[in-house]
Every structure is written in structure tokens, then in C-alpha cells.
Write a protein that binds this DNA or RNA. Structure first.
Lengths: 204, 204, 204, 204
DNA sequence: AATGAATGAGCATTCATTCAT
DNA sequence: AATGAATGAATGCTCATTCAT
């Protein structure tokens, strides 16, 4: 793939994110996306199979990128609790760094057709697995409580993070999402950890 | 509103839930809903302003009903922790009792147009307030940790419950949602409570 | 089917014939047909499954009508040669009576998509069978030559009539199609008949 | 025109025939033809004005070639009846020798836009004239009946041959087209000739 | 109150043609 | 001469809503 080719692919992805974030999923016509990307409508079909493919690619691209990043960052520490902290911070900082993308991921893409939702579920499973690995490791290392149900605990962790992100995106008044990380960590750390002498919830 | 009138209103609401659950939001045409309700298409417009109004009414109706029920149930106990437990149980048992409604609330309605989502947010706020009241009370009574952020804690509680419910609805293999309540309670109780001698998380 | 309903169905068929004859198959948009029929575009889809269905219905309607007419007329005589004469006369007079329809049948419909052509072939087979029956009867009665191949003879009869009709439709200068009947009859009669004392080809 | 140039011109023509025969007129995109011809899409526009020009050239090329051949062959005999026999045989044998071309000429090209049909009519007129010349000669020589209408007789001859060819192309089960020549000749000979002692229709 | 036939706005996609290289 | 990436016009169909009965 030539430089130029790669450029148009990315331009279309970014244009789609911008248009969807601005006009909403149901008002993101191909014509609008093409115009925003500075290409002709037909050009989109040289890089994507159809409109659905554009939307799915947004998710797969960004999610794949993100998961790779998270995995490499998490290798920096052995401490499961520290990994939870990093996970929350990265999740929030990534979304906060790209408000348009955040709006698309948290709100717009969830309004899409079932076929899109189904294919979005795939890359999401990679993220689920990542969280479950941390929980599993935490239990094995004796840091997290033994009686934690793996799936359910993952659901609580992801549900918490996801809901905090969604509220942030939908908020009328702007505020920092990353600034919420310590408090979320505090809650989840208490939820996960064995009662310890006191460091659970320390946000340092 | 006459008895007969009330009947058709309810018939349309129930028909809408059934049709959306069965065919999905994007395939729930007014014609289908009318047929399922046993009325003419035009009749729907005698009871609702438009299709959007039907969908919102589903939410408002069921949510209002539900919140009233929860509030009355929660009065049975003074213990904030016990209230959390009841909240989770009622939330799950209500959804499990009506799978169609659960599918509509957890999945389908989230695919709707922005204007619908916005107006759905209203009744949801009542539920948010309810949760925040419990947290607030828990802190005041010295059961929950003092440093909990009210909004954020509510987001974590609701996000956790909501994600567990969503996963249940989307699961291929059926299982009991209510059976997940103790584990969710266990996690949230640990998240919320001051370190206690040990009974936090006991599900008895 | 109510009177009014039947009316709209017919109005759409007639409008389609007019529009296709005037603008050609490839320029006969649904919008144009709807306008010519005095109905909304959507209305067409209340009476027909899709655009293709309208085109096929033109053929089926007119062909069915025509074959029924021909069969009843042919009963008026026992003479196979007379039947050939009648067949040619009716074919030509029917087309001449409706120039638009003739243009659609002879030219425009043959430009349609394969799926349409395939479904048009069905009613045409009824006409083929009719011709073959006459030939078969003519041979049995000793009027036509015994060594005639049924299929091939039908192809020659139909091919002759069809080509004469097509040339008439495409002609720049107008002339009577029906006036060609005697000469076509003369040729076909000579082609079919045993050598007779001399009356074959007399056009009565 | 250089050898190489001539080569590409022919390659495109042959590729077009193959692609149209295989995929049908409505699925014969320029891209497909270019690929089949082993050239770039743009190259086609160096040898032809546009897609329409390619299609017309198929007809003009093959028809011109064919008429030249027929004319030279017909010079081998003086007998008008023999010429009719030769005409039918050559028409059928030419089509049978190139099934792809036959499919394109008999079916696919007739689905084309009016402008193409109009320009295809031109070379066809040469063939029409050829047939009319034979008929004219036959009458002059006292072999054919005097009262034959020139145009109409040509229409019957061409219509018969054309329909037999079309039925052959469209047939499900394969059979020899050339084998039909004697029977078609038999019918047309009887249609054209004065009542003779008996040799009309002899296929020898 | 109830009906349901009629309405018509809205949109993804294909493909012949061009033109910078 | 040759390429092939880029262009953008053109159209059938759905379905929420209306309104005459």
C-alpha cells in the first residue's frame, strides 16, 4: 500500500469519525463523509466494501491499536492492582484525547444496525479477555479475593469504566475524564482486593 | 381516559415491546406494531404523537412503574447496604421476568435516534437520583466510605448492574440473571464499604 | 378488488406503456411512471412488488388477454389455413390498434434485464403452443405438408410475423401493419400447404 | 494502423464478445472487458470512442466480414433458389461456429441502448439489401412468384432465419443449428417459388 | 373513535470516463 | 502509447404519517 493510498484510507476513517460525532450516526451519509475526507463518493468504495465497512473499520482500527498499546503498557508492571490502575487511566486518557472518537464509540456506534454491532463485538472480546487476564492474575498472586467470578468481575470492571466514559461524553458541561480515574480505581480496587492493611484505594 | 382507551394504549405499548424484541429496533415498523396490537396504523396516532412517542412511552411507563416499586421496597429497610442488595435483586429480577422488555431496554432502545435517547435520559435520571440517595445515606450513616464521589459512585453502581444485565441479554446460552446478584453485590459492597470486621460481601 | 383499486392498477400499467414507448426502457424511471399514472411513487409499490413486476405485468396482462381472444376467435373456423390467416390478422390488428404497446412489446421489453426476459418467456410459450396446435391440426387434416417439423415451422411462422411487426414499429414513415397481412399470409400459406390447384395464397 | 495497434483493437473486440456472452450485456463492464483483453481500462479509450463504440464495432466488424463472405459465396451460383439455400446455410454455420458471437448478436446486443440499436441497424441494412437482391433476381428469372412484395418477403426470410437462430441460442439442450437449414429452406422455397413440378423443397 | 390507502422524502452504490503520471 | 486511481451523476424502494371516509 503506497503512502498516498494509506493516506486516503486514513482520511476517510477520520472524516467518518468527525461526521458521525458531529451529525450523529443516522445523519452520516456517505456523501457527507466523502466531502469531509476531500474525496469523491466513489473513492470511498475503492477503500471500503460499503458504508458498513467504514464504520466497522473505525472500531477495529482504533480498538486494535488501543489493545496493542494497552498490552505493551501493562507489561511494565507485575502488580495486578497497578495494571487495573493503568487500564483505567489509559482507557480514559485515550478517549479524552479524541472527543469525536469517544462520542462515536460510546454513543453513535451503539445505534448501528445489528450486523455492525455483531462485527464490532469481535474486537471487543479481545478487550474483555485482557481484563479477565488481569483479574485471573490478581487472584493467582493473592492480591485479589479468591472467590471472584471471572466473567462477572470483568463485567463490573468494564461496565464501570464504560458508564463513566459515557456519562462524560454526554455531559453538558465539560470536565476531565482522566481526572475521574483515581476515584474509579479506588472503587474497583476495594471491590477486587483482599482487605489489606490499607493500601487499597491509595491513588498515588 | 376511558377503560377502553386505556386498553388500546397499553395494547400498543405491549405490542411495541414484543415486536421490537422479536424483530429488532430497525425492523419494528409502525405497521407491524399496529398489527400486533390489533389496531389500524392510524389508530396509533390517536394515542401517541408519533412512533418516537411510542418508544419513549415504553421506557417511561416501565421505568416509572419500576422506580415506584423500588422506592416502596427500599423503605422496608434502613440499612444502606441492604438497600444496595435489594436494588440489584429487583433490577435483575424485573428484567429476568420480562425477557422481551429486557431486550428492548438493554439493546434495542439504545439503537434509537438521538432525540429518543435524549428523552429516555429523563426517566433514567430518577433512577440515578435513587442510587445517589442510597450512597449519600450510606456515607451519612458511616457505613460507606466518606471519600466516595456521589456521581461517580452512582456511575460505577449503575454501570456494573447495567453491563451484567446487557451481557445476560446478549448471551447465547441462557442462564439466570438473578443468580448473578450476590456476586455483583459482593463486589459493590466491597467497593463501597469501610473495611469491616468481615461481613461485607456476605450475601445471606 | 374494488373498482378504485382495479383502476389504479390499470392506470399504472397504461402509464408504464406510455412512458416506456415515449422515453424508452432505459429512461422509464419509477418517478416518471408514477407521475404519468397520477399517483405517488409509493403507490406503485402497493400494486406491484417492484419495477420489474410492473414491466412483466404489462406483458402478462396484454399477452394473456390476447391469447384468450385469439383462441376464442380461432374457434370460429375449422380450416387450419383460415386459422393462420386469422392469427396474422389479429396479431397485426392488435398491435396496430395500440402503437405504444407495440413499441414496448417489439422493442423496449427486449432491452430489459435477463430476469424480466426470462419471466416474459412464460406467457410467450402459450402463444408458441397455439401456433404449433394449428400446424399440427393442418397436417392432420391433410391441408399442410406432412413433413413439416412442428417446432421449426412454428419458429418460421412466428419469426415472420414478429419481424414484420418489428419493421413496422421501427419504420420512419407510417403505414398500415394490417395491410401487410394478406402478403404475409400468402407467403406462409405457400410455405405450409401441399401444392394445390391454385387457391393457396388467395387472400380472400 | 500498426500491427501492434491492430492487435489491441481486435483483442478488445474479441474480449468484449467473450465477456458479454459469458456475463450478459448488463454485466459487461468496461473494467471486465479491459481485463479480459489484457489492457488497462484507459487503453480501450485509445482505440474506441466509448463503450458504445466497442459494442457497435463488434457488430460492424462481424457483419461486414460476414456480408463480404456471403456475397462472394453467392457468386458461385446463378440459381436464386440455390442462393437462398446458401444464405441459410452460411448464416447458420457462421453462428454455430462461434457460439459466443451468436449469443451476443441474437440476445445480448438487442438489450442495448436505443442509440446502439440504431447504429447497429446500418450494417444490417446491407444484409437486408442482399436478401432483397436475391428475391428480386428470383422474380426476374421467373423462379419466384411475381406478386412477391420485396420488402415484406425479405422480412419473412430474415425473420424466419433470425427466429430459428434465436431459439437455437436460447435452447436449454444443445442441438445443431446448421441441421435446421434444410427444413427452413424447404419452407422458404415453398413460400417463394412458383408451383413447380416438384423440386421445391428438395434439400439435395 | 377508527380505519388503511395514499403519500413522498431520503440515500447507498455502480461504473463509464478522465487525466496525471 | 499506456496506465489505473479517481470521479460523480443517477435511481429504486421503504415506511412514518396523513386524512377522507
Amino acid at each position: 500500500m503506497s503512502k498516498k493510498t494509506k493516506d486516503k484510507y486514513q482520511a476517510i476513517i477520520e472524516a467518518a469519525i468527525k461526521v458521525i460525532a458531529q451529525h450523529g450516526y443516522h445523519n452520516a451519509q456517505v456523501a457527507k463523509i466523502a466531502k469531509a475526507a476531500g474525496v469523491a463518493e466513489g473513492t470511498i468504495y475503492l477503500y471500503f466494501q460499503n458504508k458498513e465497512d467504514v464504520l466497522i473499520s473505525i472500531f477495529q482500527d482504533k480498538m486494535g491499536e488501543y489493545i496493542t498499546l494497552v498490552r505493551s503498557e501493562l507489561e511494565k508492571t507485575e502488580d495486578p492492582l497497578e495494571k487495573i490502575k493503568l487500564l483505567i487511566q489509559m482507557h480514559f486518557s485515550k478517549l479524552e484525547a479524541n472527543r469525536d472518537l469517544a462520542a462515536v464509540l460510546q454513543i453513535q456506534l451503539r445505534q448501528s444496525h445489528p450486523s455492525i454491532r455483531r462485527r464490532i463485538a469481535e474486537p471487543l472480546k479481545g478487550y474483555y479477555r485482557l481484563i479477565e487476564e488481569i483479574v485471573s492474575e490478581g487472584i493467582a498472586k493473592g492480591v485479589f479475593r479468591e472467590n471472584l467470578n471471572l466473567h462477572l468481575t470483568r463485567q463490573v470492571i468494564f461496565g464501570s469504566i464504560d458508564e463513566v466514559a459515557t456519562c462524560w461524553v454526554m455531559a453538558q458541561k465539560p470536565y476531565s475524564l482522566l481526572a475521574q480515574a483515581p476515584a474509579v480505581y479506588d472503587l474497583l480496587a476495594h471491590a477486587l482486593c483482599k482487605k489489606q492493611s490499607g493500601n487499597a484505594g491509595s491513588t498515588g
